[in-house]
Design a protein around this nucleic acid. Structure first.
Length: 387
DNA sequence: CCTCAAGGTAAGGGTAATTTTAGTCC
DNA sequence: TGGACTAAAATTACCCTTACCTTGAG
């Protein structure tokens, strides 16, 4: 079965760069790039070699994108890349006859003398579209001995609070006292400890929703990118009652859509499933972790956020019996059949998606108009409390 | 000294798995 | 009236990139 989509795996799904394939490379300063080195027995292209050997800052990368048409990949590491990295580590270990501990010592050297640049270059070569610095950060996190310890216990919170009180935001030192990774301590602190007593959880009141919309819309004035918003600041402006994560999710998954659609909120229909499946299909990825959900969004298509689309995909996938043991192409084969027909009406490629009657029928009173349903949660004391 | 690349740490920005809540159907 | 199901909303652990700093080689 399977019938692999063939289509030869297109080039890297790489992002960045805006056309302009190379040009004169008179530019060069210090980089002394050994470009297409004839010795490409390594099969590395000039850019890949550059990415795998030079520790370039974001500014430098941006410069090369502009001047050279450099292309590199950003975002989450896919399952395939992770495997490539792990294989490369294992390969490095066995060819040099090293033990696991030796490798750990390379990844987390106890003193400068143990640094091993060759190691990092070799790993980066295994994932040719990633800059060495990205691989470095990824591996250090993925292999950290204190990673992944699950839910925070009250005692840990207490330790954290104490450590921060006495040390300040020196996360590496705090981490030693708490027994968690520095970045996890930082996250716990900013996402759960700060303003803990002011925190509100549960459904948003319509007053809160209005306030958030107001704040975000104001901050966006003049810019047109959602990510020009500093969510920490937004949280502050909400009076510290909602965290940056709460604000961000509320906005991107719900309010922004409602705002752009003039107060309407659409419901997912089988037609949307149809469109989604076909969009995914056209990507020809070998694995769903390779999908970049942001590219799936389409202003012509209901304003679904990347997050919603991703969740929708997961729901569909999990609806297939035995999906755990299937490959992505196999799953797609099934979903393609299940969603073979566009529910009457043409594929709505057009404009605003006027919710005419439509199979899924949005009405049903549901939909929380700006304040219907659960809505208000009464003034519940707070609410006023200025700010 | 001075410069600059390597590499360590913190801040900024983000995602996705899981849990909770709210409808809907029978 | 209430259990089973499902979709939407909320929560939070976990992740990646960028900014900034320190260090040591040349």
């Amino acid at each position: 079965m399977t019938a692999i989509p063939s289509t030869s795996a297109r080039p890297p799904a790489a992002v960045s760069t805006s056309g302009a394939k190379k040009s004169t490379k008179k530019h060069r300063r210090t980089l002394d790039m050994t470009l297409p080195s004839a010795s490409d027995s390594s099969s590395l292209t000039g850019h890949a070699h550059l990415l795998a050997t030079k520790w370039m800052s974001p500014a430098k990368l941006a410069e090369l994108i502009a001047s050279e048409g450099l292309v590199y990949k950003k975002g989450k590491f896919s399952a395939i890349e992770i495997k490539q990295i792990n294989d490369a580590i294992e390969n490095y270990r066995t060819t040099r006859n090293l033990s696991e501990e030796d490798v750990n010592a390379i990844i987390f050297p106890s003193d400068e003398k143990q640094r091993d640049a060759v190691f990092w270059s070799e790993l980066s070569s295994a994932v040719s579209e990633r800059p060495i610095i990205a691989v470095y950060h990824y591996v250090r996190r993925a292999r950290h001995p204190m990673k992944g310890q699950g839910k925070w216990q009250p005692e840990e919170d207490a330790k954290l609070i104490q450590a921060v009180t006495s040390l300040g935001q020196q996360w590496e030192n705090v981490a030693r006292l708490v027994g968690r990774m520095a970045t996890d301590c930082r996250d716990r602190y900013r996402n759960h400890i700060v303003n803990r007593d002011k925190r509100v959880s549960g459904p948003w009141s319509s007053a809160e929703e209005e306030k958030l919309t107001q704040i975000v819309v104001d901050m966006q004035k003049g810019k047109d990118l959602d990510n020009d918003i500093f969510w920490g600041k937004v949280s502050e402006m909400m009076g510290g009652t909602r965290t940056r994560q709460q604000c961000r999710i509320k906005w991107t998954d719900s309010l922004s859509k409602r705002y752009k659609a003039d107060g309407q909120s659409a419901r997912w229909s089988s037609r949307d499933s149809f469109i989604l499946i076909h969009k995914i299909d056209s990507l020809n990825v070998r694995d769903d972790t390779e999908i970049d959900w942001k590219t799936m969004q389409d202003p012509q298509w209901n304003l679904w956020s990347a997050h919603v689309l991703q969740r929708r995909w997961l729901t569909m996938k999990k609806g297939i019996k035995g999906f755990e043991d299937m490959t992505h192409p196999e799953i797609m084969d099934i979903l393609r059949v299940k969603n073979a027909d566009v529910p009457h009406a043409k594929v709505v490629k057009s404009a605003k998606f006027v919710v005419d009657s439509d199979d899924e029928e949005p009405r049903a009173g549901s939909s929380t108009g700006p304040g219907t349903s659960a809505g208000q949660r009464k003034g519940d004391s707070s609410d006023s409390d200025s700010e």
